[in-house]
Design a protein around this nucleic acid. Structure first.
Lengths: 241, 241
DNA sequence: CACGGATTATGACTTAGATCAAATCATTTC
DNA sequence: GAAATGATTTGATCTAAGTCATAATCCGTG
């Protein structure tokens, strides 16, 4: 049946390119799908340590992560760097650049990664014709805003232990949503990058990991983390301020 | 001329309702303008201390501030409140609710305010037909994301003095962009709310205001602030970390 | 306009996390 | 695979900002 063909093509397009985020709720016509093809052309491999884009660079595309791991960070004039986020499969990066037309942060691959470049003018044009795409673009941007507010609460109000616990639980939840283990995963970033993200020094991060281990909450072996007591971590964030 | 009539109508629509943000770059047809009228109907007055919306409430509209002053804040389960932003004339609130369909934060008027309610489904529908509106919606959301990243840097990396200096300069810049004085303005929030926004305690805010005054950087009289040495404040943020 | 609850200012003291330092452990690189 | 470089852990201090306490001041309301 024609419907099935279309559906299959959609699945290919979406899974091919992590467009899941952008177009999962299906409801496309045939010619709309052809148009979507325009977007899937430009895949790109990014090696560990390589920049996907740099602050100040002209904005032309947003990027969907097919696989791998990225950090984004803003740099203050005096050189201080602050990590604003860690990003994995399915996440969209570069949305903060739409407003000014140039990127406001750096995006660096923390491991060998594959991304899908989505030219924003094409995407924007397309989304005029495809309500679902349009909707999802808004949804994704809105989600980022809401999540950033959670981070602001964390940076402004939580103490070091709570931040680390929230960080680990967030990672766990995101890995699990992508089909990986929720209790055992490899950190792709250094203690310093975790600290930068959480507003702490690397020594503090290290010390608290050790303490969590002593308390039986987690098992740490350098970058390998095992959550032994997720409810315990959750309790840490809530109760004892 | 017909063109002029349309232009005038547009100006009315926009200024009437702080839609400036949403549709300034003009280029509308007559019937599009009529559609825009749909949006301008619902104005609302909000008294000091009143909630515009509460966390958890069903999302249906975003809000443009015509006049007045708001704070938005997220509340943690244990009761801790964190102020995520202060908002004034022309600002758009409620964008973080699109993703989930319910509001993620509280919005409270800090003085007698007037807002314009923009039903999001209508706005969304309209923006499908009006590229300019569509573009500007993206721009506004993107700007908020980028700004939130700046705040994250502030909360994560700057010390108390720097945060206060950045805060005052940001307020100054925003007042001045709206035609008010850049050097003299009334704070509409308490020291505690400033502290909550900046990740500091109210005593610290108070102390640093006093110190700034001793150093001749500002003049404070309760809520009235006068910037005496804006370059000095800027230097504070940059140089001496 | 006087009362009472917020709000602000300031001092004395405490503390969580930063800083400094050193030792170990891991990973590149040649 | 040895050397070099980078990442992590842990300990010993230090300090910026938090906490606690008190007084002064400012509204808002009856």
């Amino acid at each position: 049946m024609k419907g099935n063909i279309i559906l299959n093509q959609l699945k290919v397009v979406c899974s091919l390119c992590s467009l899941r985020e952008l177009c999962l709720p299906i409801g496309f016509g045939a010619e709309e799908l052809q148009q979507l093809d325009v977007l899937t052309g430009s895949k790109r491999l990014v090696k560990r340590g390589e920049y996907l884009y740099r602050s100040g660079a002209k904005f032309s595309s947003i990027y969907a992560i097919r696989g791998g791991f990225f950090k984004t960070s803003v740099i203050h004039e005096d050189g201080r760097e602050h990590v604003t986020g860690f990003h994995m499969m399915g996440d969209i990066m570069g949305l903060d650049a739409i407003a000014t037309g140039s990127h406001a942060c750096d995006a660096v691959a923390l491991e060998y990664s594959e991304i899908c470049e989505l030219p924003f003018d094409k995407l924007s044009e397309l989304s005029m014709a495809m309500p679902v795409l349009h909707q999802n673009l808004h949804r994704i941007m809105s989600r980022e805003i809401a999540f950033d507010h959670e981070i602001m609460l964390m940076l402004g109000k939580m103490k070091a232990e709570e931040r680390l616990a929230a960080f680990l639980l967030n990672l766990s939840q995101r890995f699990s949503a992508r089909g990986y283990s929720a209790v055992s995963f490899q950190l792709r970033m250094t203690r310093e990058e975790i600290g930068s993200y959480l507003g702490l020094k690397l020594e503090t991060v290290s010390r608290i990991f050790s303490r969590f281990q002593e308390e039986g909450l987690i098992e740490v072996q350098k970058k390998l983390i095992e959550l032994k007591d997720a409810p315990g971590l959750k309790r840490l964030i809530r109760g004892l301020s």
